[in-house]
C-alpha cells in the first residue's frame, strides 16, 4: 500500500491491555487548568519508569465542566488498577490540590460496559484535618477541603475502565527535520481525536526500544534495527535513504479509539508525502506474541 508516495508496511502495532481513567481539571481560567493538568501528566511517558502514562486529552469549555469553569481533561493509563489508583491519588495530591483554583472531577461515569469506581479525592480529603466537608449532588459526592486560596474541590471518585496502551506507528523519513515535521502534523491531527493521548514529549518518541539488552540488568535497549547511524553494522530494517525514524505511541480508552487516532496520524504524515521526504510508515510489534491487540496498518488505512 502506498499513500501519496509513502509506503505503508504490511505490519501491525502490537498493543496491551491497560487500565485507564479520565479526570476533568477545572480552574478559574484555562491557564491554571493547564498548569494543574500539565503537572499532573508530567513525567508520565512510559509505564516502564513513570508508573503511568498520562496526557492531556483536550480542552473543555465551561459548559462541559461540572462547575461551569474552563478546564481540560486528562487521561491516565497504567498496567494494573493498583498502580493506576496509587498514581492518580499521588498526582492529584501533588499537582491539583496544590494548584491555585484547580478542582478535579470524574471523567468517566457511563458509556462503558464495565466501570470500576476508584478514589479520586476520597483520601485527599484528610488534608482538611477535620475541616473538610462533602456534598452529594445527583448521586455524586464532592469533597471541599479548606486551603489557603479558598477551597480545593474534588469529586470523591472517578471511573476506571479496561483500555488499551501501546498503539504506535513509525515515521521513516529522509531527514530528521522531515521526520519531525511529519510527526508534528500527525500529532496535530491526532490531538483532535477524543479518548486518546500520546504520552511522550510532544507526542513523539525517538528512542524506540527492543526487548532485552547485552547488559543483564536492562530489560530494554535501543531498537538498533531502526537506528539510522547503525545501518552498516547491525541487522537493519532501514533502507539506505532513511536518515531518521520517529515513533508516535498512543494510549486509548478503547481499541477503536486507537484505530481512529492512528488513521488520523498516519494520514496527516502521508499528506506531506514522499515529496517532503516521508518514505515509509511502519509499526512496532513483538511478533504478536505479547499483546492481544494488533493494529494492522494497512487495515486501518484502507
Amino acid at each position: 500500500m502506498i499513500i501519496n508516495g509513502v509506503s505503508i508496511d504490511d505490519t501491525f502495532a502490537e498493543a496491551f491491555g491497560m487500565r485507564g481513567t479520565r479526570v476533568l481539571i477545572t480552574a478559574q481560567n484555562l491557564r491554571w487548568a493547564y498548569n494543574a493538568a500539565r503537572a499532573m501528566t508530567g513525567f508520565a511517558t512510559s509505564v516502564i519508569a513513570c508508573g503511568v502514562e498520562a496526557g492531556i486529552e483536550r480542552e473543555l469549555s465551561p459548559e462541559e465542566t461540572p462547575d461551569g469553569r474552563p478546564g481540560v481533561s486528562i487521561l491516565m493509563f497504567a498496567m494494573s488498577s493498583a498502580v493506576l489508583m496509587k498514581q492518580l491519588e499521588t498526582r492529584l495530591g501533588q499537582c491539583v490540590l496544590t494548584c491555585p483554583t484547580a478542582a478535579a472531577f470524574s471523567g468517566i461515569d457511563d458509556g462503558y460496559p464495565e466501570i470500576t469506581k476508584i478514589n479520586l479525592g476520597k483520601n485527599l480529603r484528610f488534608f482538611g484535618d477535620g475541616f473538610q466537608t462533602s456534598k452529594v449532588f445527583n448521586g455524586k459526592r464532592y469533597w471541599r477541603v479548606p486551603v489557603m486560596d479558598g477551597e480545593f474541590m474534588t469529586e470523591e471518585s472517578t471511573g476506571m475502565i479496561r483500555s488499551v496502551g501501546g498503539g504506535n506507528f513509525l515515521i521513516l523519513a529522509e531527514s530528521q527535520p522531515q521526520a519531525l515535521a511529519a510527526c508534528e502534523a500527525a500529532i496535530d491531527a491526532m490531538s483532535k481525536v477524543p479518548n486518546v493521548i500520546m504520552p511522550f514529549p510532544g507526542g513523539v518518541v525517538r528512542s524506540g526500544s527492543k526487548v532485552g539488552s547485552k547488559y543483564k540488568s536492562l530489560i530494554a535497549s535501543t531498537n538498533d534495527a531502526f537506528c539510522p547511524t547503525l545501518k552498516g553494522i547491525t541487522k537493519t530494517e532501514l533502507s539506505p535513504e532513511i536518515e531518521s525514524v520517529m515513533e508516535i505511541v498512543i494510549d486509548g480508552l478503547t481499541d477503536p479509539d486507537i484505530r481512529v487516532a492512528m488513521r488520523a496520524g498516519i494520514a496527516a504524515a502521508c499528506e506531506l508525502g514522499a515529496k517532503n521526504g516521508i518514505k515509509r510508515i511502519s509499526a512496532g510489534n513483538y511478533g504478536g506474541k505479547l499483546g492481544p491487540y494488533h493494529f494492522k496498518l494497512r487495515e486501518i488505512m484502507a
Binding site: 461551569g68 469553569r69 456534598k135 464532592y142 479558598g150 474541590m153
Partner: peptide, 13 residues
Amino acid sequence: THTLPFLSLMFKS
C-alpha cells in the same frame, strides 16, 4: 466573604 466554586456545581445540579 468568599467565592465558593462548589456553589456553581451545586446550582448546576
